[in-house]
Write a protein that binds this DNA or RNA. Sequence first.
RNA 1: GCCUCUAUAGCUCAAUGGAUAGAGCAAACCCGUCCUAAGGGUGAGAUGAGGGUUCGACUCCCCCUAGAGGCACCA
Length: 620
Amino acid sequence: MIKDGIIKALEKVMGIKEQEIHLETPENEEFGDYSSNIALQLFAEIKNEKSKVKITNQNLKDSKSPRNLAQKLTEELKKDKGLSEIVEQIEVAGPGFINFRLAGTVLVSMLKEVIERADKFGESEILKGSKIVVEFAHPNTHKQFHIGHLRNICTGEAICRILAANGTKVVRVNYQGDVGLHIAKAIYGIQKIGFEDPGDVKGRMAYLGKAYVEGSQDYEEDEDAKEKIANINKKLYEKSDPELLELYEATRKWSLDYFETIYKRVYVKFDRLYFESEVFKLGKERVLEGLEKGIFERSEGAVIFPGKKFGLHDRVFITSEDVPTYEAKDMGLAELQFAEYNPDFVLHVVGPEQTEYFRVVFKALEALKPEIKNKEIHIVYGWVRLKEGKMASRTGNVVLGEWLLDEVKEEIIKTYKSEENVAEKVAIAAVKYSFLKVGLSQEIAFDIKESISLEGNSGPYLQYTVARTNSVLRKVKYNSYSRSQENAAFQGGDELSSDMSSSFRGNPALLARGGRHKNYNNYKDLKPEELSLLRTFIHYPEVVEEATKNYAPNLLCNYLYDVAQKFNLFYQKHGILKDESVRVEEQESVRDFRLALTAATGQILKNGLYLLGIQAPKSM
RNA sequence: GCCUCUAUAGCUCAAUGGAUAGAGCAAACCCGUCCUAAGGGUGAGAUGAGGGUUCGACUCCCCCUAGAGGCACCA
């Protein structure tokens, strides 16, 4: 990255370690492309004599103020040959910042890189050679798939894609609850309201939801029912009642078939489905073995892990009824996951209510299997809360994931008269983006009118911008714009992976002509909107890296929105294909340059949207 | 009671310890239909309260208030 060149120069001039240097991207464009506060930090450290940083340059040590130090640093930096090649201007500003403005040639080479690397632009190899299991979705069978689950899969999928873009091998995994009390409640509910098969996946799911609500309510209100449900639970674990088992197997499949339709609809495919029914036995065995070793303890008839010894809290792993809990199952799950994939990390994308649960479980796991210490990570994503009232499948007060998608789609068709397949893509984008643009741990107060916006900072806005760039590029009739390229770029197939700038890339002559435009080499001649857009391109790889390090898809959203805004402003103020205000002899080169900007914008938006798991339709 | 998280504009959300705290929605005004009006511009509007650390705090620490979640046989 270009950033690294500046960091290296600073490192050389001061003789300090790279890690100590922190380059930031100023929000205000007037402060340059990069900014360093190193002078401010160094000065404070020198003054307080608590500096861990050793400066070899005596001249710098005698500085009288941060600004003075920054000034001296700047003078030294200006002598650096490597730096002068990439940086056009270095200046001291404010209380002692050193601001760097990149050379026009660097910006232009980045523009070319975007177009040439196309779909690969932004990818890195910082995680190359690693393997990460990402566990997400985990809906429970016999229960509704609500908007909380929807946020979960949108988040999980985005994290997978972002990780994969950095060279790691990602294994998508889904751990589904198909045994346990909630199942027993639903089965009890079915028995109570009478078994029926509505026939279609959706109807079956609605029926199961109704049964679950019945069972839950009776469980809480009726002692007799509570006992019956506990009994069903035990029988299901033991598989001792064939009739019950048959009902269970059938309805379990209903749920799984339904979940599949949702995954498919939001472009998610799992490499491995784990089930609680698959791991509870193994988990229980491991807990019992741990009990022998003194890792677990007996208490009031149950087997517990004494989390209190580690500053946490105690948790039950096997009940006094001899049934393994969720905790015990996780022991089995972890063993399977590590045996099957031997990952460097397992990420569990799970809500905040399980934060302390996981701390205990990970600690127990560590005691059981020291080799997986620090390899289990809980990625916390915030709840989707209803703006009014509380969402609980227990009472049936839920907003279903599918309902939301349908609702948004319908709205799009009504408002914009969109075609079916476009409306579907736009609806998915609107919903996904609305979940992804907020910080991962932020709760979302859900209100369909306010949460899922179709304009402004929204998924459709980004899609619209891509469609715009596509439209402009499509109108350019180049000789080399072959039919096959057209097919690849704009038609059929998987538009997620298609290369939208191929029309541009496929024409080296055009690129070369653009390169001759004087604005390329003297970027001060560029219109402010052009320059502003051009300068955002260099940051895309950095943003992808930040999003990766912090598991933060929202950083990517912020950036893409910024790019789209800058493009639309540029688009508004200047003609791309035709601009009467440009002198005749320059019109062709200006047009070529603006086409390059357009192609690069579309490419970056498309790449970024891909990482978010959002498709960009060719037109809207 | 103990533990964890959250508190930013009327609403929903941004802001790697940095420079003038950014957007969208809603409301006001304007541009615009010769490359897609799902667009662009202008003005108005905010860091829950109080301390502290720092050259500098929405950000870190302490305390208070409010909300959410968790704390033994649910998942």
